[in-house]
C-alpha cells in the first residue's frame, strides 16, 4: 500500500481519479488501500489508526466496556452535524453511559457505489475532529462498497472501547425507589432537526441536532463523588423509551413532572404542528441520570456547570408503586401513562 503516491489526494479534495466511490474501493485492492491512505488516514488526523495491520493492539485495564452501534441516518448532513460525527459521538455515549472512559473506536463503512468522494471526505474529516475533540482514537476500520441502489450512500458502524475505573458501578439494576431523575438538557432537538430537513419540511426557526460526546459530563459527575445509579442517552424512542427501559429493568415506577421537561421553543412548535410528542423524539447529546435523592442537588450543580448540562433539570423520581411503568403528572395536574411506542412515532392526521 505504501507505493501509492498521489499528490493532493487528501480530504476535503476529492480523490483525483475518482470523484465518486466505485465498487473497487471496497475490493481490498489498490483502490481500497488508496482510500484508506489518502482519505481516511488524513481525515481522521491525530486520532487515525495504524492502517498497516488487520487489528490494533491497545492498552486497557481490568474492566473493559465495549459497545457497538450502526448509523444509517438520512439525510447524511443535517443542521448541527452529519452521520460521521453522529457515529463517533453516539458510540462514545453508549460507552460513557456505563461510566467508562471511552478510549478507542473502530469504524466500518458500508458505502454505496457512486457516493461523491467529497462527501465521504467531509464525513471522515468530521469523524476525525469529533474523535480528537473527545480524546478518543480510531484504532481500526473497514470499508465495503455495495452496488448502486443497494445502499443509502453511507452506513457507518462504530464500536467503542472504554475503561471502567475502580469503584464505578453504573447500571439499571442499581436504580431504586426514591432515586431522582435528572435530564441534562432540552429534549427532542436531534429528532426534530432531522425531521426539519427530511421530506422537505421547513420550519421558520432553525433546529439543530444536539449531537455531542457525553463522557466529559459523566466524568464530572463521578469526579464530584455522585453515586450515579444509572445513565441512559435517550436516542431513538426519546426520553420516554429510556425511562421505560429503566423502569422495567429496575422494577421501579417512574413519575415525571411534565412541566419540568425542558423543550426548546422551536422544537415544541414543530412537535405541536406535526402532532408529535417531544418525549418520544430522539436526542444525541443528552443523558438522563438516576441518582440517590440526597445526591440530586450536587449532581444538578455539577451538570449545570458543565457546558453540555447547562439546562439540566430534575424531572421526576422513582417510586415503589406501578413498577415497570412511567407516569407523567400533566400540566393541568392530572396523570397519564407514558408508554413505550409500538413502532415509530407517526405524525397524526387529527
Amino acid at each position: 500500500m505504501s507505493d501509492v503516491t498521489i499528490d493532493g489526494w487528501s480530504c476535503p479534495l476529492p480523490l483525483r481519479d475518482h470523484p465518486n466511490v466505485v465498487m473497487g474501493h471496497g475490493g481490498g485492492g489498490k483502490l481500497s488501500a488508496e482510500l484508506v491512505e489518502h482519505l481516511f488516514v488524513p481525515a481522521f488526523g491525530a486520532s487515525s489508526p495504524d492502517a498497516s495491520s488487520d487489528a490494533a493492539v491497545v492498552a486497557g485495564g481490568d474492566r473493559i466496556v465495549v459497545s457497538t452501534d450502526t448509523f444509517v441516518v438520512r439525510p447524511r448532513f443535517f443542521p448541527g452535524g452529519n452521520i460521521g460525527e453522529l457515529a463517533v459521538n453516539g458510540t462514545i455515549n453508549d460507552v460513557a453511559m456505563r461510566g467508562a472512559r471511552p478510549l478507542y473506536l473502530s469504524v466500518a463503512f458500508i458505502l454505496e457505489e457512486g457516493l461523491p468522494m467529497s462527501e465521504l471526505g467531509l464525513i471522515a474529516e468530521s469523524m476525525g475532529a469529533a474523535a480528537e475533540g473527545a480524546g478518543v482514537r480510531i484504532v481500526t476500520g473497514d470499508t465495503k462498497v455495495v452496488d448502486r441502489g443497494h445502499g443509502d450512500g453511507v452506513y457507518i458502524n462504530t464500536t467503542g472501547i472504554g475503561v471502567l475505573d475502580e469503584g464505578v458501578d453504573i447500571g439499571p439494576d442499581r436504580v431504586e425507589a426514591g432515586d431522582a431523575v435528572i435530564v441534562s438538557g432540552t429534549i427532542g432537538d436531534h429528532g426534530m432537526a432531522i425531521m426539519s430537513v427530511r421530506e422537505g419540511l421547513e420550519f421558520e426557526a432553525a433546529i439543530e441536532s444536539d449531537t455531542a460526546p457525553l463522557h466529559g459530563l459523566v466524568a464530572a459527575l463521578l469526579d464530584a463523588g455522585v453515586d450515579v445509579h444509572a445513565l441512559r442517552d435517550p436516542t431513538r424512542g426519546g426520553l420516554a423509551s429510556s425511562l421505560n427501559e429503566i423502569a422495567v429493568t429496575a422494577g421501579v415506577g417512574v413519575v415525571v413532572e411534565e412541566l419540568a421537561l425542558p423543550v426548546e421553543r422551536a422544537v415544541q412548535s414543530a412537535c405541536e404542528m406535526l402532532g408529535l410528542d417531544p418525549f418520544y423524539v430522539a436526542n444525541e447529546g443528552k443523558l438522563v441520570a438516576f441518582v440517590p435523592a440526597d445526591h440530586a442537588g450536587v449532581a444538578l450543580g455539577v451538570m449545570r456547570s458543565h457546558p453540555l448540562g447547562a439546562n439540566a433539570v430534575i424531572i421526576g423520581e422513582c417510586v415503589p408503586n406501578h413498577p415497570g411503568m412511567v407516569v407523567a403528572r400533566t400540566a393541568i395536574g392530572s396523570t397519564r401513562v407514558v408508554d413505550t411506542q409500538i413502532g415509530e412515532q407517526l405524525p397524526r392526521i387529527c
Binding site: 400533566t330 393541568i332 395536574g333 392530572s334 396523570t335 392526521i349 387529527c350
Partner: peptide
Amino acid sequence: GGQTHSIIRNGIDKLLDDAIELVHGPGCPV
C-alpha cells in the same frame, strides 16, 4: 379524535373521573 388525544394526553378523563363520563366518539378518521 384531536380532542380525545388532548383528553388522554392531559389526563382530563382521570381528572373528571366520577363526575362526568366521557365517551370517545367516532371522530378519528383513522
